[in-house]
Every structure is written in structure tokens, then in C-alpha cells.
Amino acid sequence: MKIDLSGKTAIVTGSTSGIGLAIAKGLAATGANVIVNGRSQDNVDRAIEAVRAEPSAGTISGFAADLGTAKGCDDLVAAFPRCDILVNNLGIYGRQDFFETDDARWMQYFETNVLSGVRLARAYLPGMVGAGWGRAVFISSESGLSIPSDQIHYGCTKTAQLSIARGLAKRMAGTGVTVNSVLPGPTLSDGVAKMLEAEMAGTDKTFEEVAVEYVTTHRPASIIRRPASVEEVASMVVYACSTQASATTGAALRVEDGLVDCI
């Protein structure tokens, strides 16, 4: 299958590392003109160089802003008013006990993980409707279906993304605009590496080895018995953004190692 997105403009939020950066690279390889985003200009510049170092047929530019705020989203839309492909990848996560998670932390997660995508979809999808074609993808998580007891605040925001994407797909019915969710599971990303720093400290184990142990211990339902790579997740996202995926909308596309036990 040859995916060609030449001439399409794609915005990937939270894309200076990890899954987001892999998605940016994957979309650029299809010919899309990709806009990467991060909170700092230094990180954005490094991401641009990383994408340019890969085989790419599209152009790459960047925008530094915290899209977990209304102002950040407004500034992005002002700088890049047109978007054909919106990948709402921005997200934060971390383990914290429910009884130690205060209102401020709940609001931080909701603003970043949920409202960033809501605000950008509200801004960009009407233009996609006018063009008769568009793609929106929300990067959710298997934690939105199997809520982790040590990350209830995070799991809740991922469930919210699934609801928004499904409802928005219905709202876009008949317009040529598709809206889907992609659900990664444990992934070999920079964020997971940071989360597992304590487990790695004082050992001679690699990140990959510790990550496999984490999966087998904390996600024993995993069928592939390992974390996914960021490229494996990105491949699903790129397909969902393609012209070939025109009949796929309102879907929750799973790249979660087979963790979710349903058929």
C-alpha cells in the first residue's frame, strides 16, 4: 500500500519526541507538509531536524506553544489557519494515587489531554468540511478502557477522548471528514522511559529490558509480551490519516499489545 498525502497540511501536537515525533516522521514520508509542536523552541527545532534527517517528501515546520492552554491553541490557529490532518497527540501521564491527586492536577490533565484536542478540532474541522476532506485522530490509550488504579486521573482523560472522537465522527457524517481514536498500550517512548527511571536506577538493565518487565508484571494480559515501538503506533496513525482509510471513522483503533480483552 502506497500512502500519498502530498499537498496535505498535517498538524501533530506534542510531537517533539516519542509517539508524536514518530507520527510526524511517518506523515512527512508520505509527502504531507507537517507542523510539529512542543512547549519550547529548542525542542521544536530538534524535532524539525530529526524529521528532516529521515527520507521525506513533505516539508516540515514547527510551532512552540503550550497547547494545554486556550491561548496556545489560539496562537497555533492564528499562525497556521489551514489544516487537513489534525493529530491530537499532546498528552501528559504519570502514576499518582487517587487520594493524593488534587483538583489542580485533575484540571491540568483535563486541559492538556482533553481540551487541547477539543479546541483544535473546533477550530480546524469546519475548514475540512468546507474542503470536503479531512482527518482528525485523537491519540487515546488502552488506559481509557482498562483504567489503571494508579493513574485514574489519566485514564479518565483517555476515556473522554474516545467519547469526543466517536461523537465528533457522527457530527461529521457525510462531510468527507473522518474522526478516529488510536489506542496505544505500553510503548517504548521517552515518557515511559521517564516513568521507569526508578526501576532502572541501580541496575545494569536497559530501558527495553525494564520495559518488558513492566509489561509482564503490570500488564500481564499483553499478548505480544513486550511494549510496542513508537513506529508501530505511528504506522496505525498514518493509515488513519490516509485516503485509503476513507471508510474508517468513529473507530477506536487499537495498537495496545492485545491488552484489551474483548472481541
Results as ranks from 00 to 15, higher is better:
180 N>E: 04
250 G>F: 02
30 T>D: 10
129 V>N: 04
25 K>P: 03
179 V>G: 06
214 Y>L: 01
98 F>M: 14
203 T>L: 09
85 I>Q: 03
12 V>A: 03
84 D>W: 02
224 I>S: 11
150 D>N: 15
156 C>G: 08
35 I>Q: 04
23 I>Q: 07
86 L>T: 09
29 A>F: 09
62 G>W: 12
66 D>V: 06
97 D>R: 14
216 T>W: 00
7 G>R: 11
36 V>L: 11
98 F>R: 14
30 T>N: 10
200 M>Y: 12
80 F>V: 13
196 L>T: 08
101 T>S: 12
131 A>F: 06
136 A>D: 09
19 I>Y: 05
4 D>L: 00
27 L>C: 07
220 P>S: 05
132 G>N: 06
220 P>M: 01
229 S>I: 00
209 E>D: 07
72 G>H: 11
139 I>C: 13
261 D>L: 12
44 V>D: 05
133 W>A: 04
2 K>T: 04
234 A>F: 04
22 A>G: 02
214 Y>A: 01
80 F>D: 05
193 A>W: 14
146 S>E: 15
258 G>V: 06
67 L>V: 10
125 L>A: 11
109 Y>V: 03
116 S>C: 14
73 C>S: 13
34 V>F: 08
238 V>G: 01
137 V>Q: 12
40 S>I: 00
151 Q>Y: 09
27 L>A: 11
183 L>N: 12
177 V>P: 01
79 A>M: 09
120 L>H: 08
243 T>K: 11
237 V>R: 00
49 E>H: 10
130 G>D: 14
101 T>K: 08
163 S>P: 03
160 A>E: 11
206 T>P: 02
189 S>L: 09
127 G>C: 03
243 T>S: 07
247 A>W: 04
108 Q>A: 13
99 F>A: 15
113 N>D: 12
254 R>D: 01
81 P>T: 08
207 F>Y: 14
81 P>H: 07
70 A>Q: 15
134 G>D: 06
78 A>C: 04
198 A>W: 14
100 E>A: 11
202 G>F: 09
183 L>K: 03
147 I>A: 11
117 G>S: 12
69 T>S: 15
14 G>N: 10
226 R>I: 02
216 T>Q: 07
66 D>L: 01
172 M>Y: 01
35 I>W: 08
175 T>I: 06
260 V>N: 06
54 E>Y: 04
157 T>V: 10
76 L>Y: 11
10 A>R: 05
71 K>V: 15
128 M>W: 04
208 E>M: 01
175 T>S: 15
158 K>P: 14
203 T>R: 09
194 K>L: 10
171 R>Q: 12
218 H>I: 00
222 S>W: 05
44 V>I: 04
8 K>P: 00
138 F>H: 14
252 A>P: 00
45 D>C: 02
195 M>W: 13
136 A>R: 06
249 T>C: 05
134 G>I: 07
73 C>H: 10
26 G>D: 11
218 H>R: 05
139 I>H: 14
196 L>K: 12
84 D>Y: 05
206 T>C: 03
140 S>R: 12
184 P>R: 10
107 M>F: 08
61 S>P: 00
262 C>R: 15
54 E>L: 00
255 V>K: 01
120 L>P: 11
132 G>P: 06
240 A>Q: 06
